[in-house]
Design a protein around this nucleic acid. Structure first.
Lengths: 221, 221
DNA sequence: GCCGGTCGGTGACAATATCACTGAAGCGCT
DNA sequence: AGCGCTTCAGTGATATTGTCACCGACCGGC
């Protein structure tokens, strides 16, 4: 697939002068990742800013004892600032980004990133806004984990995972790692949901039957 | 107190040309806050970047049901990017910064911030690094809250709060809001620590007796 | 001294996490 | 089809943490 004029797709680049964008197209490299592949991680820090052209990246953190929690998702048209953050701060971290679908990214080398940040206010704003959005996302995660009830969080997450569809293809264990909790907890709460008729389950898949009910539960926080 | 050449104090400004720094001194306004005053909050978003010249700011988040958790502290020489983050992202948030000591800040208006970010690579790096550090801080908070044991976290926090001293002036309720937990939990664990001889307590104050023991506990995660 | 507010202690109970184990479902193989 | 392997989900027991209700001790101002 040709990613041709990817600069069209980003708030931070589409307003740039044509000549700057042409330059970008030459310095930035496109890469693709198959579904399930790691896009970045502790052992695998890219040089600089990632632009996600196509697909979705799940960014999660793993604790020392192996439990995992999903921090946020990077969708097409967004950039992933966590990689640059980890590059700048030398501190240890253990976040990783995994391609949830087939993924196409554009990697902007640090030098080009610096130049662009210096010259183009629109680009600068884009980057700062991206940082800000992630900071806010993380605040939300903290609030949920520290103070949220697990059934409320699960209901909310089911709706997100379902999106417009009715079915979710995910194991209980995967959902548990979305929320940073244990599989057994998810199993028990899902059974509760099933008893109440909100969902139906089969191995590895969940059918959302009563979205309004889940929505009501999710909003009751 | 005169804050005179505050530009000396920050990594992002001390390397700037003298003439730029002189300009900064004229456009940036110094403000002081008494201990306990709110420096920023949901109702009180500053125009732009805050530089903390003197003192310490505790940044915390409050949940809908009134519980609180400390996200991190801004120390002298650092900047507080959360304010700019909140300014850029219109989303609702509920973080606030409270002066833990008497505090002197320099407020850099957005216009000057933009100009400086455009012209000075050193300043830009400083700002990006500040963002990165906070992102990493928040990752740590998430890890602790989601996966950490409360006794371990409390031991660690006691050591931080004690610093070089032996005594901590804080109520159980205050410590609970540091960790995002309930007062009763802190009371019980502190009593446990006392029984083991790690600390001694009196109303509103805690004496850290056996730092090595607490350190061992804190590191046993 | 008394009063009123803050601080800390406690027991009962609820919610969540952990552990150990079980059986069921799918999948490849012959 | 039948067999064995692996993954997935269900369950009870127990530990940890959070919630609720209440109480007495302490401390300040008067």
């Amino acid at each position: 697939m040709s990613i041709g004029n990817w600069t069209e797709r980003f708030e931070g680049t589409k307003a740039l002068p044509p000549e700057v964008r042409r330059r970008l197209q030459t310095v930035a490299q496109a890469r693709t990742f198959a579904k399930g592949r790691q896009v970045f991680g502790p052992e695998n820090v890219p040089d600089s800013l990632l632009f996600l052209v196509e697909g979705s990246i799940r960014v999660s953190q793993t604790s020392d004892n192996g439990r995992e929690i999903v921090l946020y998702r990077v969708e097409a048209g967004e950039s992933c600032v966590l990689t640059t953050a980890c590059m700048l701060a030398e501190e240890a971290y253990n976040a990783e980004g995994v391609a949830e679908t087939e993924v196409t990214v554009v990697v902007l080398p640090k030098r080009a990133f610096d130049a662009l940040a210096a010259e183009e206010p629109a680009f600068r704003n884009f980057v700062f806004a991206a940082y800000s959005r992630r900071l806010i996302d993380l605040l939300r995660v903290i609030d949920d984990v520290a103070f949220g009830r697990i059934d409320v969080r699960l209901a909310e997450r089911l709706l997100v995972l379902a999106g417009g569809d009715r079915e979710i293809a995910a194991t209980h264990a995967q959902i548990a790692s979305e929320l940073g909790t244990a599989r057994e907890v998810v199993s028990r709460v899902l059974n509760e949901f099933q008893k109440r008729g909100h969902i139906a389950q089969s191995r590895g898949r969940i059918a959302v039957i009563d979205k309004p009910a889940l929505r009501a539960l999710a909003d009751s926080a």
